[in-house]
């Protein structure tokens, strides 16, 4: 039997005394588009950040294509993998952030090229060609030589998505990528994500855009107080919520 693309088992994570994730299980197959919804503080973003080791976690396991992420056993002792190995594993996933996080001293195309050159070891010309292809895909080839400060929020986020996806990740992680955008700029970013989904990119999205989650995902996960409260296909989740918590949450969210 082939490995699951993503497999999370009994994930626990605390900040000091505060337990944010209390045993999360989750699996994804190749091509899945999964949205994580839930109120703030429910652990959505933390879960996403554990997958690429931007957060450490105390117990449980995460694997991608059967390869365990971040930790290994040395005898009976669980320890963090070597920094180089973690860097390699991080490149298995791509991530887009709420704040875009483009490198402000590099043009759009250079932002995309950096990982291709430093991590994928492409030469400059190849890296530029790949980067331009992806900038074209997000509709920003004409802005390739603009600096982040010269781009609108929506454009910056599209460059950031191109930067992540040019690395050819197995799984894309989107962390509330439209939350910092002006309302009129949200759509262009969602459109890009939708196209990627249609092309078969596997993705895991933390989002507050309920309508979008409904349209784009084949599965929705509702997180509640550090646990998965409910999951299922979007139609059931949004129209026939089983738990009171989810019904309550949907009522207060923008989904209508």
């Amino acid at each position: 039997m082939p490995n699951n693309l993503l497999e999370i088992r009994d994930l626990h994570k605390s900040y000091g005394d505060v337990e944010v994730l209390k045993g999360v299980d989750c699996t994804m197959q190749q091509g899945d588009v999964v949205s994580i919804i839930g109120s703030s503080g429910s652990g959505k973003t933390t879960m996403l950040r554990c997958i690429n080791m931007l957060e450490e976690f105390q117990s449980g396991s995460i694997s991608i294509d059967g390869e365990e992420i971040g930790y290994e056993m040395a005898g009976t002792q669980r320890r963090r993998k070597k920094e180089k190995e973690i860097a390699r594993q991080r490149a298995l996933t791509g991530m887009a952030f709420q704040q875009f996080n483009l490198f402000p001293h590099m043009s759009a195309v250079r932002n995309v090229m950096l990982g291709l050159i430093k991590v994928k070891k492409l030469d400059k010309d190849e890296a530029r060609a790949v980067s331009e292809k992806w900038l074209d895909r997000v509709g920003l080839l004409a802005r390739a030589d603009h600096f982040p400060g010269q781009l609108s929020g929506g454009q910056q986020q599209r460059v950031a998505i191109a930067r992540a996806i040019a690395m050819n990740p197995r799984l894309m992680l989107f962390d509330e990528v439209t939350s910092a955008l002006d309302p009129e700029l949200v759509n262009e970013v969602l459109q890009v994500i939708k196209t990627l989904a249609q092309d078969g990119m596997s993705m895991l999205l933390v989002t507050h855009e309920m309508r979008f989650a409904y349209e784009v995902s084949n599965r929705v996960i509702f997180m509640n107080q550090g646990l998965i409260g409910e999951e299922g296909n979007p139609r059931d989740m949004f129209h026939k919520p089983k738990s009171e918590r989810l019904a309550e949450f949907l009522k207060t969210s923008s989904f209508a």
């Binding site: 952030f97 704040q99 996080n101 950031a160």
Partner: peptide, 16 residues
């Protein structure tokens, strides 16, 4: 320097 930039670098697989 905003810490998000370091995280963006980590996320594409750069070393510290």
């Amino acid at each position: 320097i905003p810490p998000g930039l370091r995280e963006a670098g980590l996320a594409i697989g750069l070393t510290e």
